[in-house]
């Protein structure tokens, strides 16, 4: 698991807090389609399963999982994907 010390700048944010599984995979996949290579997608989620699912999804689909950090203030996780192609 790649942990980041702080939140990263992102081009687009998907706020999936309180939204049910597997929205944490479906909506990012849709949003990535509209990003250019090198752009960063930020995912906000309160779903623990996302911590395993999103890195695994990135590995399977050839996207770069940059890492994650916890947002104590917002009670959620922030995960980052850089679009590869």
């Amino acid at each position: 698991m790649k942990f980041l010390e702080q939140a990263c700048p992102a081009d687009v944010t998907a706020d999936l807090v309180y939204r049910v599984c597997p929205m944490h995979l479906l909506e990012p996949a849709e949003l990535l389609k509209d990003l250019k290579p090198g752009q960063v997608l930020e995912i906000l989620t309160d779903y623990d399963g996302a911590l395993e699912d999103i890195p695994a999804w990135c590995a399977k689909h050839g996207q770069e999982f940059m890492g994650l950090c916890e947002d104590d203030c917002d009670h959620c996780y922030r995960l980052y994907i850089r679009k590869v192609a």
Binding site: L16, Y18, R19, V20, P22, L26
Partner: peptide
Amino acid sequence: LRLVPQIHGGIQEDGR
């Protein structure tokens, strides 16, 4: 705007 779903189920209505 965030909403906690009141009917828990699948991903209909974008998971809300």
